[in-house]
C-alpha cells in the first residue's frame, strides 16, 4: 500500500511538510487508523493528529469519514474543517 498524503492549513504547518508518500503497516485499514498511526509515528504527527475530531479527510478528491477504507494507492488529503466563503 503506497499512499500519497497531502496536508493543508495548520495540519501542513504542524507536519512541516505539504505531502509525503507512505506505506502504512498492516492493520492500518481506514482513515481513522491512518490518523491514529500518524499521531503515534513522530512528534509532528502527534502535534497534528492527536485530536482526530479536528481532522477531515478526502480520498482522491472525495470527502471520506473516519471509517472509510483506504485504497491500495491514491491521494489522501488530511486537513482541518474548512473555512471558505
Amino acid at each position: 500500500m503506497a499512499l500519497t498524503l497531502s496536508y493543508f492549513a495548520w495540519v501542513r504547518e504542524r507536519m512541516g511538510i505539504a505531502d509525503e508518500t507512505v506505506t502504512p503497516p498492516a492493520g492500518v485499514a481506514t482513515i481513522g487508523d491512518l490518523i491514529g498511526w500518524l499521531a503515534e509515528r513522530d512528534e509532528p504527527g502527534t502535534w497534528a493528529f492527536s485530536e482526530p475530531a479536528q481532522i477531515r479527510a478526502a480520498i482522491d478528491g472525495r470527502m471520506a469519514g473516519a471509517g472509510a477504507l483506504l485504497p491500495a494507492r491514491g491521494e489522501i488529503a488530511l486537513f482541518p474543517p474548512v473555512t471558505g466563503g
Partner: peptide
C-alpha cells in the same frame, strides 16, 4: 454549502503580529 463543503482555509494576520487559522 461553500462554507462547509469546499477545501478552503482562512488564515488571519493582525497589526499586532498575531497570525492564526480561522475555526469553523
Amino acid at each position: 454549502r461553500l462554507k462547509t463543503d469546499v477545501m478552503l482555509w482562512k488564515r488571519e494576520a493582525f497589526a499586532d503580529g498575531r497570525v492564526g487559522w480561522v475555526e469553523q
